[in-house]
């Protein structure tokens, strides 16, 4: 029961898209009997709002949004710690040892490809990051502006793991002639890839899988050199009124049962535990993940984005 308007309900600001948030939280409600109200807010507005509401929190939990945002929330004193016992078995780069934020799922970054358009322009399926530098893909790729979303920033930090900082900027410069537009929102590329207005989009992959589910001719490629990923996290807000249920949610979502639901509910998100059944998802073992130190990423964000704006964007 998700809609009831009783005051005792757990109030969730969800930065997981609405449909998937519904799936996950519905499963939570069914398994625990806790009532939940939620509002969908993308991560930026959510953080801005939580910050503005700090003196009188309107929600108990911030659910979703990449780990980096939860680090900011923690630093700004917007959240409170809770050490859940469910973290046993979760790889330590996914959670905060002090208990301020907890993982929900992770998303690798990938290239979404509209196969119909690819055929139309007679280009071949890429396998590596180098492949998409091909001139046959001129103005046929979109990725988001790193200023606007964590997605594209992850792309930069990930590429830095492969090429080093100057190499990564150099790579993006070489990629620039193939870019149709840098979208403003993190999920912008999929909206052009789906209906065939561009051949490829680089972003976190769930949206591409969802387009596939909707019947769009979309395929996803994880380049061989490796891909960065985001960890969608959850924090309990400082001053939460319904602390008990908030803690129940954390316990559940990190647990094996909760993680299995991430797969079972067809969210196309990757679980953060390896002890679950991956179902139809491409097994994690075949994707090379590039871990990025979130603290380093956060510290260098302004500088790297300035570099991108000054060195890559003009091409």
């Amino acid at each position: 029961m998700l809609v009831a308007v009783t005051l005792a309900n757990l109030v969730v600001y969800s930065s997981v898209d609405e449909a998937n948030a519904r799936k996950i939280l519905n499963a939570f409600v069914e398994e625990t009997g806790v009532g939940v109200d939620f509002v969908f807010l993308s991560s930026g507005p959510a953080l801005a709002r939580i910050e503005a509401e700090v003196n009188n929190p309107q929600a108990d939990v911030w659910f979703g949004a990449p780990l980096e945002n939860h680090i900011i929330a923690k630093e700004r004193g917007l959240t409170q710690p809770y050490k859940t016992l469910s973290v046993y078995g979760v790889s330590p780069e996914f959670y905060d040892v002090e208990g301020y934020y907890h993982p929900i799922y992770m998303n690798p970054l990938g290239i979404g490809i509209n196969t119909a358009v690819l055929e139309q322009i007679k280009a071949s399926m890429p396998v590596t990051w180098e492949d998409i530098l091909s001139t046959s893909l001129s103005r046929m790729i979109q990725y988001p502006n790193p200023q606007s979303s964590g997605t594209a920033y992850s792309l930069i930090t990930g590429l830095i793991q492969i090429y080093g900082e100057d190499g990564a900027i150099d790579y993006l410069k070489k990629l620039a002639p193939n870019i149709q537009t840098y979208t403003q929102s993190g999920t912008g590329p999929s909206k052009a890839v789906g209906p065939g207005q561009v051949a490829m989009g680089i972003q976190f992959t769930p949206a591409f899988f969802q387009f596939m589910e909707q019947g769009y001719p979309v395929k996803v490629v994880f380049p061989k050199e490796g891909v960065p990923y985001e960890v969608a996290s959850v924090s309990i807000l400082k001053g939460a009124r319904n602390l008990t249920d908030a803690q129940k949610l954390i316990d559940w979502v990190v647990s094996k049962a909760g993680q299995q639901q991430i797969v079972n509910q067809q969210t196309y998100f990757y679980p953060i535990r390896s002890d679950v059944d991956f179902g139809s998802l491409q097994p994690l073992s075949t994707i090379k993940l590039l871990p990025v130190d979130p603290v380093w990423a956060a510290e260098n964000k302004t500088r790297l984005i300035e570099r991108w704006i000054n060195e890559v964007l003009p091409y």
Binding site: V5, D17, N20, F38, S185, T187, F208, E213
Partner: peptide
């Protein structure tokens, strides 16, 4: 949580491929 809008729905639906 109590007051939501269609436009926000449009945004979230199109964000998730719908």
């Amino acid at each position: 949580a109590r007051w939501n809008l269609i436009t926000v729905q449009i945004l979230s639906q199109s964000d998730s491929g719908r």
